[in-house]
Simulated scan of single mutants.
Amino acid sequence: MSEPALAPRNALTGMILVWSVALLAAVAIGIFVAEPWRMPALLVSFGGVVLLGFAVQLGYGRTHGFVVRVSASIMGALLLMGVVSVGFGLAAIATAG
């Protein structure tokens, strides 16, 4: 049986890392990718963020609460990317009219 960690790392730090990568990816895609290719690029980048979320939480090294930590980091990233994409979609509608 393994001994408990005396000072485990903060799991919120890993979630914030995943959320910040998702936010930066969504903003970069909104700025640099042409409008017809934004949604496929967002889907691919979200797949990368999901893999990053798994990797960060596996690197955390604790099994207790793994599913909760991974789902929180992925859902936060999904919400951030969704809000940013809605903002860019509304901006595209406003400039097209």
Rank of each mutant, 00 (worst) to 15 (best):
24 L>H: 03
85 S>W: 12
82 G>K: 01
79 L>E: 00
76 G>D: 07
18 V>H: 02
77 A>Q: 04
79 L>F: 09
57 Q>V: 12
72 A>W: 10
78 L>D: 03
48 G>L: 04
44 V>N: 01
28 A>P: 09
26 A>V: 06
24 L>R: 07
50 V>D: 08
28 A>W: 11
78 L>Q: 05
17 L>F: 12
80 L>P: 01
61 G>F: 07
32 F>C: 12
54 F>Q: 00
82 G>M: 03
24 L>D: 11
72 A>T: 12
22 A>R: 02
42 L>F: 03
15 M>A: 14
35 E>P: 12
82 G>V: 10
58 L>A: 15
56 V>R: 11
41 A>I: 00
32 F>N: 09
32 F>V: 09
81 M>I: 12
18 V>W: 07
44 V>Y: 03
56 V>T: 15
79 L>A: 14
15 M>E: 05
52 L>A: 08
65 G>H: 05
49 V>P: 00
68 V>H: 09
60 Y>T: 07
55 A>R: 12
12 L>D: 06
35 E>W: 10
53 G>A: 13
14 G>N: 14
57 Q>H: 14
28 A>F: 14
22 A>G: 05
19 W>K: 04
61 G>D: 07
18 V>A: 13
74 I>M: 11
39 M>D: 13
30 G>K: 08
47 G>I: 07
76 G>N: 02
63 T>P: 02
10 N>P: 06
64 H>D: 09
61 G>T: 04
62 R>M: 09
71 S>Y: 12
26 A>I: 05
54 F>R: 05
15 M>Y: 05
33 V>S: 01
34 A>D: 14
75 M>G: 09
28 A>T: 15
73 S>T: 10
34 A>Q: 13
44 V>R: 00
57 Q>R: 15
